[in-house]
Amino acid sequence: MRLQYSSMEKLTGAFILLTLLILLFTVAVVGRGKNWFRKHITYYTTFKEGYNLVTGSRVKLFGTDIGSVTDVELTENNLVRMRIRVLAAYASRIRIDSIATVESPTFIGSEFIALTPGSADAPVVPPGGNIISKEKKKFTEYLEEYEFERTLKLVRDILKNLVTITTQLQDSTGPLFGTLENIRQLSTTVNEGEGTLGLIIKSDELYQNIMSELDSIGKLVASLRKTVDHFSQAGADFEKTAKNVEEFTQGATEMTDKIQELLERLLRVSVLLERAMTDVPEISRQAREGMREVNRILDSVKENFLIRPNLPPAAAPESHGLEIRGDQ
């Protein structure tokens, strides 16, 4: 046997060998990614339908791939029997009370078998054993589950109410605009010094009178104290009388303090009302903005294909002079 090789033979040999090595490496890498070389355990599960499951469809546990469907066949009693291959590492979690269901990330397509792990005390399903299955819900069943019609009706009622409220709010004789008008009138009256509150706030003369009367009461109290001092010396019979007078004087002093406090409060109220009157136009503008937003929402809600057919007939527009004047 000739053991001397030309450089061409050596290079060609190296080329072929390198190719084989690359092939092996690639197979190893891809196999690792595909779990080709990991031990799998086969189980069976049966459904009433195939649910578009095919050989190669994924088997998942908690949404994680743990295997695949290896065969789909129709049994004699018209059931669909799936042979599934699950990674041996996860086989201990598949117990006899584990349930196999068919799920899909969307309503249609990409179906996979989702397994639920069984309870810890239940025995493990042996290799080649059957896993209990639960049928996949149909679309109509999903609709029933979520009481879709009832929900739709509720939404429709809510929208109806919203429309009514908005209409009432938009009404110039309605509660919102009535309240705003009352506030406006009240503030005008107070500003013009009409009415009791207006008079109290606006009349300087009354204020001066009250203040002078208070001074007189103060002087009177002081003279009474002097008189009492004189009479105390005159006899004990007057002691009782003096005590009563003293109590009266104390009561009068307290009354004076209360009146002063009341007047200060009135002054504060007057200032607040003045401020409130300057805020009324701003409140009115904000209310208008709010109304515009509500209208926009209503328009978009009306555009929705689910809502549009269920809307009540539109009421005839009523002019109240406060209609929203478009975008300004």
Partner: peptide, 13 residues
């Protein structure tokens, strides 16, 4: 075999 190796060398390597 030799001719085949030559061809692999020319075409492949």
């Amino acid at each position: 075999v030799r001719t085949t190796i030559q061809q692999i060398y020319f075409t492949g390597f």
